[in-house]
Amino acid sequence: AEDTGLRVELAEEDDCSNSSLALRLWVEDPKKLKGKHKDNEAIEFSFNLETDTPEEVAYEMVKSGFFHESDSKAVAKSIRDRVSLIKKTREKPAGC
């Protein structure tokens, strides 16, 4: 995946029984972001695979003051990449 300077990982192990995931996002490379942000902070949030979109969550993070508007695309992309990976893992027979 393209390096956005952001890292998104599962905050809890995925047991594949729930469409809602707990994800954690943090800034790995501040130089890749356009706006200011708080250092060394991880943001944990829920993401529903069926009803949520990465763009929507990124927008909420911007509105909540975690990121500058200009970084919302990078935030959305980071979430989208991780969610795609989780979905692919779930689709594999041995994924869960």
């Binding site: 943090w26 902070e41 991880a42 993070m61």
Partner: peptide, 27 residues
């Protein structure tokens, strides 16, 4: 450690915590 919770108007809850040092800049 201190945790901060922010609830967006849409209802989603964001929990802010410090990133463990071991997770920073790992490649």
């Amino acid at each position: 450690s201190s945790l901060t919770q922010v609830v967006h108007s849409a209802g989603r809850r964001f929990i802010v915590s410090p990133v463990p040092e071991s997770r920073l800049r790992e490649s």
